[in-house]
Design a protein around this nucleic acid. Structure first.
Lengths: 129, 129
DNA sequence: GCCACTCGTCTACATTTGTAGACCGACCGA
DNA sequence: TCGGTCGGTCTACAAATGTAGACGAGTGGC
């Protein structure tokens, strides 16, 4: 079980994603981005930011009289947690097709494909033994 | 965009998963399973079942004076929709590692690994051209 | 024919989520 | 120094969600 307990809600995820994209940011930038991306009002973003910090997904570092917001865990960790939730639900047999679908859809670069293939080969080895 | 709009809530997912595991079932079995799995009362399961049918995830086929509940879409489709939500959030660069993590963690069978590998090879081909 | 039991429907209610206004203090430019 | 602006906190409130009791109709067994 990861330390993160309250997973972000969908709306919170959107803010989190903005934070990942922008990197540590001041409120004004997040608000602007959210306005552009989702048409949200400033208040909405502020509330979500507060809830995210309450839940521990975001950290508000005091800078002068305001804050610099940053995600407490790197993007890949956050996505991994999401992926875990997916696995937790998935039935055993359904996993293969699911991964195939993901690989197909996610249009990895050649390098990424190579890495993935290497990983798969390694796993196949294991199955041999 | 899949036809399914209102995605199931976490609690609804749990019921859906039971349905996938048990196959089309009568209320009593679902209730029993949910009681065992989550300690839920009968009412709770009934409500979730109703909401699932409202949302179109579950279909209640009249049999005698009661219903036989079945998922409207096969498990793999449902999981696929979940996976799509994951992809929708994920940043481009993060995808490779994410898939690696999934493959590693999901302990596929040899056959599944083979299929996945074949798929990857096909994708690599494409990258060539 | 009566009764316990099942089911499905209605209703309920606390909590969480989505969305946002009001207000207040700090800071900056004029 | 005065007024605007920016950011943060408080408060609000409708909708969705989690969880469940109450009730009434059908039914299988006796």
């Amino acid at each position: 079980m990861p330390p993160e307990k309250n997973t972000p809600t969908p709306a919170e995820w959107k803010v989190l994603k903005l934070l990942f994209d922008l990197g540590p940011s001041a409120a004004r930038d997040l608000i602007a981005a959210a306005e552009r991306a989702h048409g949200w009002s400033a208040s909405t973003v502020k509330t979500l930011l507060r809830r995210l910090t309450d839940k521990g997904h975001v950290e508000a570092q005091a800078v002068g009289s305001s804050f610099l917001y940053r995600a407490t865990r790197p993007a890949h960790r956050a996505f991994r947690d999401e992926a875990d939730r997916l696995l937790a639900n998935s039935a055993p047999g359904a996993l293969g097709p699911l991964l195939q679908y993901l690989v197909k859809k996610s249009r990895l670069s050649k390098d990424e494909l190579d890495e993935l293939r290497a990983l798969i080969d390694a796993q196949r080895e294991e199955r041999e033994r």
